[in-house]
Amino acid sequence: MAINRKQFLHGLMLGTGGAAIAANLGFISTGLYNNKSIKAIVIDFDKCAGCRTCETICSANNHPVNIAGLQLKGLGNPELSNIRVWHYNPPADVPVTCYLCADAPCVEACPVKPHPETGRKALYRDETLQTIWNDRDRCIGCQSCANACKEQRGGVIFPDEEGSPTSMCTLCGGDPQCILHCPYEALSYLEITDSMPLRNLSPDLLAQKLYEKYYEQKSN
């Protein structure tokens, strides 16, 4: 069933009780994948000032344009970014990008059969960087991946007009650009360990934790 972007976002915001519980239990996924450690973007919420520079950097790097035969970085339209900074009131800014979850519920949820040769579903994990990719030719636009991520992790997948997933972090091919340009040094590229706090949660839950930490309150 095709859902347009607005309906999708509507669902994203309202969430469900069940989704909140699932996200709360989202700690299982750090650590190893196929015995290899995972490196991902890690956010220091104490440092982030919510400036959204990272969005514009990510967008420019991951959406190059061709101008008179030259491939150049894009203008930096935040709409196209793989990292998103969510504003909350009381003031908390919550950047979230793909956690590269070891158990990847998004890939798990993809109903397309593994390809006989590559073993990949329409949503799959890259073996080198372990980033999440979509094979548009095989993707049926069902948005199961987006829903799985929304319900269990950060809600970082945004389906395009055809329902295919976009916005998964590419790690910029191994040289993450957002971490270089964050003016507040809030981002780093680190091996994921089980002891890292505030990972794999939805923006709403992260904001909740930040309220408790900074303002000693639970209100939202």
Binding site: A49, G50, C51, R52, T53, A92, Y215
Partner: peptide
């Protein structure tokens, strides 16, 4: 407790 920035 926190410092905040405007866009970019």
């Amino acid at each position: 407790k926190r410092d905040f920035a405007c866009f970019s």
